[in-house]
Design a protein around this nucleic acid. Structure first.
Length: 259
DNA sequence: ATGCATGAGGG
DNA sequence: CCTCATGCATA
């Protein structure tokens, strides 16, 4: 009965972030990426005359992928290209501010692993760490979800996100190891049943089409999205969000930067 | 561990 | 509408 799931009240959500967690990280990095993108995609006149054709083309590519037995080939190629671009950006920029040890991917990776190791040694779950962060009483820092802690440990967060979270998790780690020799206990609180969100699941065939399309055009216009949505019989918003998430995925540490 | 979703902030 | 940080729900 006591499903000890990771159900947390809503206290961890973004009730109206004070001013967002990491103020200075935004515009700069994005601007640099854009400014240094080596090759602005390809098709431009392709879209002018082709519409449904491109969609069909993308799906054809998906079919080819299947034949090659590597469903992710196209997407992978896109990621590689993006990774190269990102690497070139960092190299060309040569900015001291983003090249010191605190932002060094290797250091982040090393820390993430040490963190996980010590966390486990403390017998604490990812979810525990997340909620415990609120107890650190660090200004502007509340709790985090199991998802985020997991992603931090597996480096599946953006480089900037990793950098921002590192000091926070480091603080928790030291605090926790110090408190271990003592005695600690925190109260658990749960709330009754609320309306649960339902997660839409995109079927494999549709996903293949989306991936194929993404390979040729990662940022389809609203109109294209509508067309794709209709073609795949999905809600337009679902398709839009899928593309947004796909783009974010490309930027995660694990698939980015040459290090 | 990861897929789809939300919301702040920016343009 | 997008990006980005983040989370609920689920495989």
């Amino acid at each position: 009965m006591m499903s000890m799931n990771s159900k947390q009240p809503h206290f961890a959500m973004h009730p109206t972030l004070p001013e967002h967690k990491y103020p200075s990280l935004h515009s700069s990095s994005e601007a640099i990426r854009r400014a240094c993108l080596p090759t602005p995609p390809l098709q431009s006149n392709l879209f002018a005359s082709l519409d449904e054709t491109l969609l069909a083309r993308a799906e054809a590519l998906a079919a080819v992928d299947i034949a090659v037995s590597q469903g992710k080939a196209a997407a992978a190629a896109g990621q590689v290209a993006a990774a190269s671009a990102a690497a070139a950006v960092v190299g060309a920029a040569g900015l001291a501010s983003i090249c010191d040890s605190d932002t060094d991917p290797r250091e982040l990776e090393a820390f993430a692993e040490r963190f996980k190791q010590r966390r486990i040694k403390l017998g604490v779950t990812q979810a525990d760490v997340g909620s415990a962060l609120a107890n650190l009483k660090i200004p502007g820092v509340g709790s985090l979800s199991q998802s985020t802690i997991c992603r931090f440990e597996s480096l599946t967060l953006s480089h900037n996100n990793m950098i921002a979270l590192k000091p926070i998790l480091q603080a928790w780690l030291e605090e926790a190891e110090g408190a271990q020799r003592e005695k600690m206990n925190k109260p658990e609180l749960f709330n009754g049943g609320e309306k649960k969100r339902k997660r839409t699941s995109i079927a494999a065939p549709e996903k293949r089409s989306l991936e194929a399309y993404f390979a040729v055009q990662p940022r389809p216009s609203s109109e294209k999205i509508a067309a794709i949505a209709e073609k795949l019989d999905l809600k337009k918003n679902v398709v839009r969000v899928w593309f947004c998430n796909q783009r974010q995925k490309q930027k995660r540490m694990k698939f980015s930067a040459t290090y």
